[in-house]
Amino acid sequence: MSRRGEGGRIAGLFEGAGAAAINVAREAGGMVMLLGSVLRALVPPSMDGRELVRNLHKMGNRSVPIVALTAFFAGALMTIQSAPFVQRLGATSLAGWAAGYAVLREIGPILIALMFSGRVGANNTAELGTMTVTEQLDGLRALAIDPVRYLIVPRVVAMIVMLVALTAIGDLVALLGGAALGKAALGIEWTTMYHSFADNLGPQDFLQGIWKSLAFGGAIAITSCHFGTTVRGGAVGVGRAVNAQVVASAVSIMLLDFFLTYMNI
């Protein structure tokens, strides 16, 4: 509480920034280590099939409704955003182009990944975090069962598979949402919109989104497992871990999106 001079305040600012940077580096290092042990556990690809199926089922059940709703709104929103332009030019055949392109390559994969991170990733962190604070992970190790192999690998695989599948479904729902709004607000016929999509969008637009979702799924999985297994301090710690997970996932999604777009995969 003591008043520090201007110099002290600036030094404090640097101190804070340095501490934050060290913290980010530590978490990132932890995630890389986890990624390494997941990959090593996959080398002879052995996995607990029951855990995989259980996780796929649970994650799918949890996320399908919210992802479908999000995708529908995302498609509709993209059409609204291009609507003034389209109406001014009277170029209804272009409506599908702008909306469809943005949905397939960017907005669809990103929004679906953000929602997936909030639903499945956060849930995974909470679940693993609870297991960590109640020593269930140590319990597994004490039973001579490797937690990475038994718990983490099936979750990582399930999250990647699920997010790719959800993005593929979400893309379709989003285009449907775009077309529905085009019909409702702009009076564009379904067939016009369909042709506008079909003429202007190619498989590479769809595939870029899918590649992205593959990377996003991996990032969300590693992030959520990392923050879940490093929880400390009871209920407060679990809440904090979930918070850190959604933030870290969002940042990794944006960074990956940037690099994947530039590499033009």
């Binding site: 109640t134 319990g139 039973l143 069962i145």
Partner: peptide
């Protein structure tokens, strides 16, 4: 083997499934 203070049973499994886990894995 170790029996922890908090029992550390896995919440997502029934008692039988809990006990079956090491039998299956080991």
């Amino acid at each position: 083997g170790m029996v922890f203070q908090n029992a550390t049973l896995f919440d997502s499994m029934t008692l039988t499934e809990n006990v079956a886990l090491p039998l299956r894995k080991l």
